[in-house]
Nucleic acid binder design. Structure first.
Lengths: 201, 201
DNA sequence: TCCTTTTTGTAGTGATCGATACATAACGCA
DNA sequence: TGCGTTATGTATCGATCACTACAAAAAGGA
């Protein structure tokens, strides 16, 4: 059954994806409504009717990014047979995603809204929560590795998780500065060179 | 001999330092002229008479940051007896600076202007150049270590420099997310755990 | 004391920001 | 065919943006 009134003349999902790319490229503050409506091929009233506000549109864009891009990056964390392989692939997928020629370089969650109000529900705090979630997922994978005997119980898994999350954060900046896929892969390998030292008892 | 006309009623250096902190905290785009004039305790015409424009004020603020904060971070790179000690202190000073309770957390050069136009002379490209300079200084210290026999000639010093620069970039994000000095120090130590693997022939 | 020079505070400039009022158009339903 | 509902395009809204015109104020030099 179709809804009552006049049907929407644009594809909401396609428009959201275009908005995501604008936020990804320019960040929340720098992306203006004019930028968004132009990229989405709709007028402002249609945007507000479909998404509510610029902040809510951003929230949906971040959700789409997490499900579409972030999922691929974090896919192997739970699926890899060892935590070491999982973290290595986590960094490798990050390098691939952050230098994808068809996408803005760097991570939307890292670069999307560094400044601005940090009150609850703001774009800035929204992305901060996602980044802290990332650390949690890394730590949980390491905790599983401890339970499974891959890592010693003496390993400071919070430290290890924060280190690899920090490397991933930095790869966004380095990618924006023009680093190639090959360069980022080397950085990922370099970070993995610390694994032995970090996980030996 | 004092200048001709009415003397300036404020301390230019002190006002610039206050402006630096505003840019450091809020970033170039998010920092408004109202924010700046309020923090600098001057009115807009005084700001423009003394600094020219918002962009030029930012340029001077970045220069002050580089000379005041960045100098301390990079001090030991040329002075340390070994490259390993230099890089370790480079990361340790970064951790200290990025969690200084009296300052905005994170690095102004990393967070100050990630978005916006990247044309020559823009705030964004200005900071990008500083970040690439950082990589160059790391690489040059490593090159010296090769000349002095500390490192083998087979070491990919560009890779090593980019890795440690990337870690430093990431520490800005992690610091903004609330990491403590102790946590960042552990991250610095973790990065140094890769040194042996990166520099062994 | 008068003139020139520079800074100061007040009060704005046009442009752009995010967000809307309003009339019209396009649908389901009676 | 009308009625209720929702979406659309035009044309804005007040607020804020970076920036400045202008006249009074405060200095040096004559």
């Amino acid at each position: 059954m179709s809804p009552k009134g006049r049907p929407r003349a644009f594809d909401r999902d396609a428009a959201l994806e275009r908005a995501m790319r604008v936020f990804w490229q320019k960040g929340y503050d720098t992306a203006s409504m004019a930028d968004l409506t132009q990229a989405m091929h709709i007028n402002a009233p249609s945007l507000y009717a479909a998404f509510g506000s610029k902040a809510e549109l951003f929230r949906e864009a971040v959700e789409l990014y997490t499900n579409k891009i972030g999922q691929r990056i974090k896919h192997s964390l739970p699926t890899a047979t060892t935590a070491k392989e999982g973290v290595a692939d986590f960094l490798m997928q990050t390098a691939i995603s952050h230098t994808d020629p068809g996408q803005p370089h760097g991570c939307m969650v890292v670069m999307g809204a560094l400044h601005g109000d940090e009150g609850p529900g703001t774009p800035s705090s929204l992305l901060k929560e996602r980044r802290l979630d990332n650390v949690t997922q890394l730590r949980q994978r390491l905790a599983r590795a401890v339970r499974e005997g891959e890592l010693s119980e003496t390993v400071d898994i919070q430290q290890v998780a924060e280190f690899y999350a920090t490397v991933q954060h930095g790869m966004s900046i380095t990618a924006r500065d023009g680093a190639t896929l090959e360069q980022l892969k080397k950085t990922a390998d370099a970070a993995m060179a610390a694994w032995g030292g970090l996980t030996s008892p």
